[in-house]
Design a protein around this nucleic acid. Structure first.
Length: 277
DNA sequence: GCCCAGGCCTTTC
DNA sequence: GAAAGGCATGGG
């Protein structure tokens, strides 16, 4: 086991995990146990520092996963240059957020499940999926299940996915897994953000919003700006926007925030959701 | 019972 | 191309 130490200011476990980008985490000891693919990491903090502990062979994976080479201080500081007050407020409120570099396939399936659904339910469905089809693993004394392989997902039935509570999304999951099994994941290599989005949109069950989430969280395309019901509320209430079309609202924000649009999106989303609690 | 949740697809105009 | 309706499920 190795432990990495990082200043907490721009790497806060609660901010990172509870901003809707990741679904496989739970409270554990002094912090959280986070799972991705077949791996596990223990993430916790004190008043000054954030620590993550994992198996030695996974150490480089998680250094990349937590995006530790990006300077978020600069991005938070830049938030003061926008005329909308909520930008600076939300960035400072959620400055511990980082955009995780998560697995592409896991993100595709997870965000198909996410549509018209709430975060606690999404977490529950993915947990059930992993328990049903993943491999049992352990981290320290704690048991967890890996995210199922593509082949495993592609050989299930629609009824199986319905039994997890996915509802009408069951067909989308199965069709997507089957297509990816045939076509392979390498079809996503070497594409520009626009090309990649258009490719994702050809999958049944992936629309604009889900595609943008996959681009942002699975492909680290920070010039993506997902617009869901929360962002739409922010757009109307805090930006006094008049556009109705979510695609146009997304374009408005990308033009405003440019290459770091996705990071500001997370600050805003995190801020608005935490107000409601 | 109602409304809502990190929406998308199909049909219709 | 825009607008409307349908869709599964569970929490509040």
């Amino acid at each position: 086991m190795q432990t990495h130490i990082f200043p907490k200011k721009y790497f806060n476990p609660q901010d990172v995990l509870e901003c809707g980008q990741v679904f496989r985490y739970r409270h554990y000891k002094k912090g959280y146990l986070v799972n991705t693919l077949d791996k596990a990491v223990y993430l916790y903090c004190d008043s000054e520092y954030t620590y993550f502990t994992c198996n030695d062979e996974d150490f480089d994976y998680f250094k990349n996963y937590f995006d530790l080479s990006t300077d978020y201080a600069k991005i938070v500081d830049n938030s003061k240059n926008y005329s909308y007050k909520i930008v600076e407020k939300s960035a400072h409120c959620g400055k511990g957020v980082r955009i995780l570099k998560q697995d592409k396939f896991e993100m595709i399936i997870s965000f198909i499940i996410s549509q018209n659904n709430n975060i606690p339910r999404i977490k529950g469905i993915i947990e059930k999926l992993c328990m049903a089809l993943g491999k049992k693993r352990s981290f320290e004394q704690e048991e967890y299940y890996s995210f199922p392989s593509l082949d495993k997902l592609a050989t299930q039935t629609v009824e199986f996915y319905k039994s997890l509570g996915t509802g009408y999304r069951a067909e989308y999951i199965l069709l997507t897994a089957k297509r990816l099994q045939v076509e392979g994941l390498s079809q996503f290599d070497g594409l520009s953000t626009i090309e990649l989005k258009n490719r994702l949109l050809t999958f049944k069950g992936i629309g604009e919003k889900v595609a943008n989430c996959i681009l942002l969280f699975g492909f680290n395309r920070l010039d993506s700006f997902p617009v869901d019901t929360w962002i739409e509320k922010i757009y109307v209430e805090d930006f006094k926007g008049l556009l109705k079309d979510r695609n146009k609202i997304s374009n408005f924000f990308v033009q405003l925030f440019k290459e770091n649009a996705g990071i500001y999106q997370q600050y805003l989303f995190h801020y608005k959701r935490n107000l409601k609690k």
